[in-house]
Amino acid sequence: MTDETWNPKIIAIICNWCSYAGADLAGGARIQYPPDVRAIRVMCTGRVDPLFIMKAFQDGADGMLISGCHFGDCHYLEGNYKCAKRMFLVKNLLKNIGLDDNRLRMTFVSASEGAKWGAVMEDVVKTVKELGPSPIKKYER
């Protein structure tokens, strides 16, 4: 049910050292991708409280992306591992409340992977567009 006129609301929480830098690099390289994702910068994906994700979905987010450093590359040693572990929990929670857990994704984009950031953006937007608007919005209003 892809609707060409509908623009999904997607929030990305991304780490300062890898994914944010990778996103900047994509800019420097003028890699073009759809503009639907809004990024919030944190120092490390370890900062991502599962409640932030639940809060976003409660507010009606159609999709959410958490992006950090590759395993072994974390600026703070292991924040990305800790975050990745939490993702299993949150994905389970989402399924339990009847949301497709593909609306939440965690990716690992390093500071040198501008092209990969572009590809992630394309793919996240495509996935969420295929899933359609978040059902939570429908029930609420």
Partner: peptide, 25 residues
């Protein structure tokens, strides 16, 4: 200042300066 503790605290008792939960919310 990674905030890994703050992202995990079940009670929300850890304040990560400049990246507080109220700010991110």
């Amino acid at each position: 200042g990674c905030g890994t503790c703050g992202g995990f605290c079940p009670g929300g008792a850890i304040k990560m300066q400049h990246f507080t939960s109220p700010q991110i919310c």
